[in-house]
Computed example of a mutant assay.
Amino acid sequence: MTIESISIPLSEPITRKHRHLSPSIFWSIRQGFPKRLSVLLVVMSLTVPLTVWTIVSSLQIIPPIFLPTPTAVLAAGFTMFTENNLGEDLLSSCSRVLAGFVFAAVIGVPVGLAIGTFHSMDSLLSPIVGTVRYMPITGFVPLIIIWVGLGEPSKILIISLGVVLYNIIMVADAVKFIPNEMINVAYTMGASRWDVLSKVIVPATFPSVLDTLRVNISGAWNFVVIAELLAAQSGLGFKIIQAQRFLQTDKVLFCIMLIGAIGLAIDYGLKWVARLMTPWADRVRH
């Protein structure tokens, strides 16, 4: 056998099967979505639960004392506005939520920036923030009464405590997601620490800070009901508790729906503000 007769089998060429995605409108991932279909889905998300509620309550599958009809809820709301001064309660709750949320933002945003920026602040503050975050705010209510009393400051403090820790954690995480390359480039160009903080970190995290505030304001509305347990004489939470005592489910549902409508309006309002203030940011999220 000669060398020429020895044949070395060559490996067969590897053929890869390319998988082609079939086009999809409903399940497309950030590839655009028809406006008409989006509007249709929004309408369905609102009308389907309302239709089910109307059918179940109208047929009295559930007794009216537990689930009144939508028309009964609206009628109860009209009565509360015209006869029970619900407008004043609405203003009281809005002022408490606004004061508590602003106080939580003034504290939470700078502390979150400090934790995310400096390892020293992370080591100093993260353990206490992470520990207190798991403590129920309702457990502090007796202490708040002893420390602050039963006036408006105690209600504002409860709302602030319910929101401020989440502001701190979410802002700190936003800072930590900034690529180190951005900071190193700033140092290379001769920036000081203050320049890096004010001209790199703060602008880069500002869109995330706005999103954090938008998300966490819902917590402020949740805690206003707890806050208005403290000898309150006005507020939506006070109205809910008062109606609950007399099994006035229609009034309870109307106050809950009113809080939801206010929260939805605030959410869309903050989204609009974010688009105006941060046009460079990618808003295709949340």
Rank of each mutant, 00 (worst) to 15 (best):
D211P: 01
L74D: 01
G139W: 05
V209F: 01
D122S: 11
I266Q: 07
D173M: 08
N84A: 13
F206E: 05
R283F: 12
L236P: 05
P63S: 10
E152P: 08
M80H: 04
W194Y: 07
A220C: 06
I168Q: 03
L50C: 08
K35P: 00
V164W: 02
I266M: 15
N222W: 09
V43K: 05
L37N: 13
P207K: 11
L165I: 14
W27D: 11
A172T: 04
M182C: 04
A76Y: 05
F33E: 06
T69W: 06
H20Q: 15
S160A: 15
M257W: 11
L21D: 14
G116F: 01
P68S: 02
L40M: 12
H18R: 15
I144K: 07
V225R: 10
L143C: 11
V39K: 13
P23E: 08
V196D: 00
G112K: 02
L213R: 04
S160Q: 03
G219Y: 14
S208Q: 07
D211S: 14
I6Q: 11
I144D: 07
G112T: 09
S28F: 01
F66N: 05
S92L: 02
I183N: 03
L90Y: 09
A243N: 15
S24D: 06
V185N: 06
I266N: 08
S92A: 12
M189I: 12
L90R: 04
G87C: 02
M182W: 12
N84W: 11
K251Y: 10
W147V: 12
P127T: 05
F81P: 09
V202R: 03
Y268F: 13
G269M: 14
Q248T: 00
A243H: 12
I55V: 15
R245Q: 12
I115N: 00
N167K: 03
F118N: 01
W27M: 13
A174F: 00
R30C: 08
R285Y: 00
L210E: 03
C94S: 14
A243M: 15
F33Y: 12
I146D: 09
L197V: 12
P70D: 07
W221S: 07
K239P: 01
G100S: 09
F66D: 07
N85Y: 14
L41E: 10
P9L: 07
R214E: 12
L124S: 15
A105Q: 07
S5W: 07
P207G: 05
V56K: 12
A261E: 00
F140G: 03
R214C: 11
I115C: 02
R193E: 14
K155H: 05
G151P: 09
L247C: 01
S218L: 06
I144W: 01
R96G: 04
L86C: 05
L67P: 03
V129A: 03
D250P: 10
G260D: 05
M80L: 10
L21Y: 12
F206C: 06
M189D: 05
I61H: 10
F246W: 11
F246Y: 14
E83T: 11
A243P: 06
V43Y: 08
L229A: 06
F254M: 09
L210Y: 02
F246V: 15
D211W: 07
V39A: 15
Q60F: 02
S11G: 09
